[in-house]
């Protein structure tokens, strides 16, 4: 296992290197300069500004400079927010995004699992239909519509919770709830399908006929085996939520990473694009690694390392 993880770590570095390089060159293909008010700058001004940020150098030179600094741990300063180090910018923004993402993932997974399991155990009954309908609605309603409705009815009309802004736990409820709808729907759907499949397997019949209690059959034999696809999808889903979602952050005015990232792309804020991409990729690759390890723990029949295992 240790060898496997170490090997994967090495691959991780290679993957990261490729992602970083690719993104760097793709990003340089985006037109225009990273400066505000670009439409008002004269050529001489553009020259001076480019000089300041080293953008007059040929792209390969910029690339090596960037990679060199990166190895030293220097991710540069933002072009949009003068002189502000990119690393602090990300550190400041990741907090709210991560808190919201984790809350939504935990809440969503638990509710989703319950809904999915209930639906499968009560297959083709009212409980099944209600939970399926909920799941379908959860993925059919665009998140901004759901968030907007929540904000308007719970925030403005009922005045139960703050409409937006980010000032303490009370402010988390609406955005986390909006985010979790998709998680609930996804987890419930996958769990239901997998449970149905598992419940039809011979070993469940065996377990039942052995006279094991229903709870043990459900827990020990069904749920664990049904978790595989849920785990597969949950990892990346959690990362997407934790690294911030543009729309929810925008609607609830949460100072998170998602909006900043999209903004940096449309404004050509190169250092921020690069740093966020790296951050996101690291999270993602680590989660995939964890998922792969979990495969083996949840279902010992799967040998991740391929070959001998």
């Amino acid at each position: 296992m240790v060898r496997f993880v170490l090997k994967r770590m090495l691959y991780m570095l290679i993957t990261l290197f490729i992602i970083t390089s690719f993104t760097f060159f793709l990003m340089k293909l985006l037109p225009g300069s990273p400066f505000n008010n670009e439409e008002k700058l004269t050529d001489a001004q553009k020259f001076i500004l480019n000089e300041k940020y080293g953008l007059n150098d040929p792209v390969p030179v910029q690339y090596f400079n960037y990679m060199g600094n990166l190895l030293k741990g220097d991710m540069g300063v933002s072009f949009q927010y003068d002189n502000r180090p990119v690393s602090t910018m990300i550190a400041e923004r990741i907090g709210p995004s991560a808190v919201l993402g984790i809350e939504a993932t935990i809440f969503g997974t638990i509710i989703g699992l319950i809904l999915g399991i209930v639906a499968a155990l009560r297959h083709n009954t009212a409980a099944d239909y209600v939970s399926s309908l909920f799941a379908v609605l959860g993925i059919s309603i665009p998140s901004f519509v759901f968030a907007g409705l929540l904000q308007y009815y719970v925030g403005v009309k009922l005045d139960w919770l703050p409409v937006a802004l980010w000032d303490g736990p009370k402010y988390h409820v609406l955005p986390a709830l909006s985010l979790s709808v998709f998680v609930i729907a996804t987890v419930a759907r996958f769990m239901r399908t997998e449970m149905l499949e598992v419940l039809g397997q011979d070993y469940i019949t065996t377990a039942k006929s052995k006279g094991l209690s229903k709870l043990v059959v459900i827990y020990k034999h069904s749920v664990r085996n049904a978790l595989i696809p849920v785990v597969t999808i949950l990892g990346p889903l959690a990362i997407n939520l934790i690294t911030g979602t543009l729309i929810i952050e925008k609607i609830f005015a949460v100072p998170g990473l998602g909006y900043q990232f999209v903004g940096s792309i449309t404004l050509n804020d190169y250092p921020v694009i690069m740093a966020t991409t790296i951050f996101y990729s690291v999270c993602f690759i680590v989660v995939i690694l964890i998922v792969d390890i979990l495969y083996g723990i949840i279902d010992p029949r799967i040998r991740v390392a391929g070959g001998k295992g």
Binding site: Y152, G155, A253
Partner: peptide, 14 residues
């Protein structure tokens, strides 16, 4: 800082 217009209006309303 509030980027979404509907949110700004809801904040005004409350």
């Amino acid at each position: 800082v509030v980027k979404e217009e509907a949110t700004r209006i809801n904040l005004f309303e409350t």
